[in-house]
């Protein structure tokens, strides 16, 4: 169940990074291609940031679980 959640988050990030620009594009006006494709860089940085945050979030959840466990022991 938890694994399923993580996959959902990853697919959501990928979906967002790839389809959001397409959704924002109207006709010939392309959000990702205008102003020298700078928004491609924005998307790349966002994916890296979200990926690292996702990993840290996962690590924190594990730590919380461990903290609860050790608390029970005392």
């Amino acid at each position: 169940m938890k694994k399923y959640k993580a996959y959902r988050l990853i697919t959501f990030i990928v979906f967002l990074a790839i389809s959001l620009p397409a959704a924002l594009a109207e006709g010939n006006r392309d959000f990702m291609r205008e102003t020298g494709k700078i928004n491609v860089v924005v998307a790349v940085i966002l994916v890296i940031f979200l990926g690292i945050v996702w990993y840290l979030f996962r690590l924190e959840r594990k730590l919380t679980k461990l903290e609860h466990q050790t608390k029970d022991d005392q």
Partner: peptide
């Protein structure tokens, strides 16, 4: 995985 994803985004527009 991050390298692969960012590469796919970059590739899509180049």
């Amino acid at each position: 995985i991050l390298g692969l994803l960012t590469g796919m985004i970059w590739a899509n527009y180049t």
